[in-house]
């Protein structure tokens, strides 16, 4: 077990190094940092001097080493656009994206898993067919269209919910949360729904397919033949076996939700990482883009690690065989 975790940690270090290298390459080779920083009136001598001071003439390896060690110390450099430290900009935006992603994931799980189970157990029912059809429409329509439709209906026509921003936030130990105010929750609903619909369909269809497979297995037939109550049969025997493969996909999806919330964030003007990334692209703010890359990669690595641990927690066959 310890060995397993250590192995995954070592692997993660290599993944992060590779991503850091990409971010560094972006920083170093996309455009010239000095000409980005200086104006037209700066003389060539001054530019050279700046280049020397910033260490841009050092060998490649030295620069990369400096880049990664700075990163490890929490020094992410400064934004070209706002002249603020990147670390500060990113950390101010992370809560918004994480909260949005988390609520979207929650919606997709709370609706998706029961719906998947239901459609698996009554594959031919009218309700099941309706659910399947409606959700198919949900995946086929692009996220931004769903977002705009929601804004139009609930925000503009009915006027029930706010259509942009995070509403009221409360600062808890440096974390700007919208979970603690009514206005915050109201603002969260539409973007989370938009982001969650696609995940929901995927989760539901996956649960459905896996569940149907599991229901055909020998151990379910045997449990039925022993007269195990139906409720236990479905939710204890079948669902737990269904979840083993589903967790992997949900984990990867959650990473995806965070990384690709860009569209939803820009539709709802949600002040998260995605919006920051879009703004940075517009201004070729390379330091921010590089750090964004690293942060998202770190996020994927963490989620995958959690998924692996969950796997071990659910499936006893993966635990080290201690006593046999």
């Amino acid at each position: 077990m310890v060995y397993f975790i250590l192995k995954r940690l070592v692997q993660s270090v290599f993944v992060m190094l590779a991503v850091a290298f990409l971010a560094f390459a972006l920083f170093r080779f996309v455009g010239d940092p000095v000409s980005q920083m200086t104006g037209v009136e700066t003389s060539v001598q001054d530019q050279e001097k700046l280049r020397e001071e910033l260490g841009l003439n050092d060998p490649f390896a030295v620069q990369f080493y400096r880049f990664t060690t700075d990163m490890l110390r929490g020094d992410f450099g400064f934004s070209y656009r706002t002249r603020q430290p990147v670390a500060q900009m990113i950390s101010a935006r992370i809560p918004a994206t994480l909260e949005l992603g988390f609520v979207a994931l929650l919606i997709s799980l709370i609706v998706g898993i029961p719906a998947g189970v239901y459609t698996a157990l009554r594959p031919r029912g009218v309700t099941s067919q309706t659910i399947l059809m409606v959700t198919l429409v949900g995946v086929s329509i692009p996220t931004f269209v769903i977002g705009i439709m929601l804004i139009f209906y609930f925000g503009v026509k009915l006027g029930w919910l706010p259509t942009f921003g995070r509403g009221g936030t409360v600062n808890v130990a440096g974390w700007e949360t919208s979970f603690l105010t009514v206005e915050g929750w109201r603002s969260l609903i539409l973007p989370a729904l938009t982001l969650g619909v696609y995940q929901l369909t995927l989760t539901m269809r996956l649960v459905r397919a896996e569940m149907m497979e599991v229901m055909r297995s020998d151990y379910i037939r045997f449990a039925t033949a022993r007269g195990v109550p139906m409720g236990r049969l479905y939710f204890r025997h079948a669902l737990s076996n269904t979840l083993v493969p589903v967790i992997t996909i949900i984990g990867l999806q959650f990473g995806g939700v965070i990384a690709f919330s860009i569209v939803t964030e820009s539709v709802f003007q949600w002040p998260g990482l995605g919006l920051l990334f879009l703004e940075s692209i517009r201004f070729v703010d390379i330091p921010v883009m590089g750090v964004y890359l690293v942060v998202i990669a770190l996020f994927f690595v963490i989620v995958n690690m959690v998924v692996d641990l969950l796997y071990v927690a659910i499936d006893p066959r993966l635990r080290v065989r201690d006593a046999t």
Binding site: D218, R226, H237, N241, V244, I314, P316
Partner: peptide, 17 residues
């Protein structure tokens, strides 16, 4: 009435003791 299945490898739920 109870039943015994052919393959003991697959007729027990692997996730439950």
């Amino acid at each position: 009435i109870s039943m015994i299945f052919q393959d003991p490898q697959t007729s027990l739920n692997p996730l439950m003791t």
